[in-house]
Design a protein around this nucleic acid. Structure first.
Length: 553
RNA sequence: GCGCCUGUAGCUCAGUGGAUAGAGCGUCUGCCUCCGGAGCAGAAGGUCGGGGGUUCGAAUCCCUUCAGGCGCACCA
């Protein structure tokens, strides 16, 4: 029996109580699905619900009276072993071992599909993250968004959403010219321009640019800057893409800001916003009246000198997303951009969208890694590339994925390297590889899944705890998708790994394999199903985080 | 000054109105003839920053206050 089925049984019991007049409740007060949860204490059964506490007042009765009535009705339900009323009116429900154990087979047969739901089916979402300027290497902050953003894309898809992951390349504007000027300076021994780039990587780029364009020093200044800028841009962008692919982060679309200017999309965006009635002229500049919505001041679209602002490109980009058929737009931004939330939402509103529905801006706080060496080449930052080389892809991704985006983070590099409980990624991966070791032994000793499955044999306390945990998985994934919180998947995997290790260690008799002098029994075979169900869920969950599930470590 | 984020065990952090607030590390005590001890079981450790309020019930929601971080461009 799944929590969904249980929830349905509770709704039915409520409806029955209303139907026979026991319960005086308006029809719209009956929840379509009753919330059930895993109680903290094992003595409180497999599932608990506070529905009686919530409805008692509306029904003009006491919580305990209502709870007792529901308990009596529910006691008849197949698959439910017992229902107790506890405390102020909680319903504590215990399932039949057989009904609970059936889940093991369900999971193994579902395989990689277990945990995939349709809770976000029909939603078409553009997910933009990282979007670092192509003027330098990716750093630790980008690494957090890379890990979180990619996990988010996978989790949203697991919930049935249609997700396009997008990287916005800020390849237009004065910053690019300073980048080109900096490369040129390194190539020719000139002065790095004001606001330019000083890192060692600029020298590396200069060397490569000179290899491609030995004529660079002879070109007129403006042309030389342009050549250095374009060559450097391509090299740097290529490095970013390569580093991200190596990190297991894949984008469906790399969107160039410059293309918005070149195609005329920026001017068109201004015109379209003007048609919507939110554009005005003042002091020689063209403005968007974002204060019509949530912004605290209006924003310039076209400067007095005729140049469009970065904000104008943002508006054009937003419209592009809208035009390309994405009702949902999620932006993952760093904390230093939180001032952008209101103006981005105002763009959506000015464009005729609903800022509550069509745009979500998620702000991630900063992260620091203690003990990390600072990159000399990039100017005293922690580079993604160095971090992965030092710590390893799995540990970096997992460590950054197991915290909510809005908590400031201070990680210790040494902890991420440890192969002990200090390091949750190893704890979870170890559990997975242990399930594989059990499988290998089973194969060797002739324990085969297809020979038997008797769920009523999974009646040990640690087995029911494990089954309870396994049954939560689809809801955890759906919830992580709904709330845009990938860390919930990681936290769940840690709890599952813990339950698995407990089961494994609980009692020497609870083995999926016989001792060498024993015969294979149905108990062994059935426990192997449970073992494999755990393996399946650990592998599925790790995959959502972009972390490998090793068979041996 | 205004706005956003954060404040939970010695440390790093979970906990989107429920029962005795949890995990890991660190500190103690136990558990290996046989599936991976990279593990497990237990103990100790808390005014959930402070103060009000909402309600059957608040770490969670509201107000206020203190502390820390970040942001308030015709920059990108």
């Amino acid at each position: 029996m799944t929590p969904t089925e249980l929830s349905g049984a509770l709704s039915a019991a409520l409806a029955a109580a209303v139907a026979d007049g026991t319960l005086q409740l308006p029809a719209d007060a009956i929840p379509a699905s009753v919330h059930v949860e895993r109680p903290r204490q094992r003595e409180h059964g497999d599932w608990a619900t506070n529905v009686a506490l919530q409805l008692a007042k509306k029904a003009g009765t006491t919580p305990r009276t209502l709870a007792e009535d529901l308990a009596a009705r529910l006691g008849e339900t197949r698959g439910i072993k017992s229902v107790d009323v506890a405390g102020p009116g909680f319903l504590n429900i215990t399932l039949d071992a057989g009904a609970a154990g059936e889940l093991a087979r369900t999971i193994v047969e579902a395989g990689s599909e277990y945990g995939r739901t349709g809770t976000l089916a029909g939603q078409v979402i553009d997910l933009e993250y990282i979007s670092a300027n192509p003027t330098g290497p990716l750093h630790i902050g980008h690494t957090r968004w890379a890990a979180l953003g990619d996990a988010m894309a996978r989790i949203l898809r697991a919930a049935g959403a249609d997700v396009t992951a997008e990287y916005y390349i800020n390849d237009a504007g004065a910053q690019m010219d300073r980048f080109g000027g900096s490369i040129l300076a390194r190539a020719t021994g000139g002065e790095i321009p004001e606001g330019g780039y000083h890192g060692e990587y600029v020298k590396e780029l200069a060397v490569k640019v000179l290899e491609r364009r030995p004529d660079l020093p002879e070109l007129p200044q403006d042309e030389a800057i342009a050549v250095a800028r374009e060559e450097g841009y391509q090299l740097q962008l290529a490095e970013i893409r390569e580093v991200l692919e190596g990190f297991g982060v894949h984008f469906d679309v790399w969107f160039s800001e410059r293309s918005l200017h070149e195609s005329g999309a920026v001017e068109q965006a201004v015109d379209r916003l003007r048609e919507q009635g939110h554009v005005f002229d003042s002091d020689g500049a063209v403005w968007l009246r974002t204060t019509d919505f949530t912004d605290d001041k209006d924003r310039v679209l076209i400067r007095a000198n005729g140049e469009p602002t970065y904000f104008a490109a943002d508006a054009a980009y937003y419209l592009s997303k809208k035009d390309r058929g994405f009702p949902g737009k999620i932006y993952l931004l760093g904390a230093d951009h939180h001032g952008y939330i209101n103006r981005l939402k105002a763009i959506a509103a000015c464009a005729g969208d609903d800022p509550q529905q069509n745009i979500e801006v998620l702000i991630g706080q900063l992260v620091n890694v203690g003990g990390a060496k600072l990159s000399k080449r990039a100017g005293n930052i922690i580079e993604l590339r160095d971090l992965v080389e030092w710590i390893g892809r799995d540990a970096v991704r997992y460590s950054l994925s197991r915290y909510p985006a809005d908590t400031p983070l201070e990680l210790q590099g040494e902890d991420m390297l440890k192969q002990t409980n200090d390091n949750p990624v190893f704890y979870v991966q170890y559990a997975h590889s242990r399930t594989c070791a059990v499988d290998r032994n089973a194969a060797e000793r002739g324990v085969r899944l297809e020979d038997a499955f008797d769920p009523s044999l999974l009646n040990h306390e640690s087995e029911s705890a494990l089954l309870g945990r396994l049954t939560e998985y689809p809801r955890i994934v759906a919830q992580a998708a709904e709330l845009r919180e990938p860390h919930r998947v990681a936290r769940y995997l840690e709890a599952l790994a813990g339950d698995y290790h407990s089961w494994y260690n609980d009692d020497a008799k609870l083995r999926a394999n016989p001792y060498p002098d024993e015969d294979v029994t149905d108990a062994h075979r059935t426990r192997l199903w449970l073992n494999d169900a755990v393996r399946t869920v650990l592998a599925n969950g790790l995959d959502l985080l972009g972390v490998s599930a090793p068979e041996r470590m």
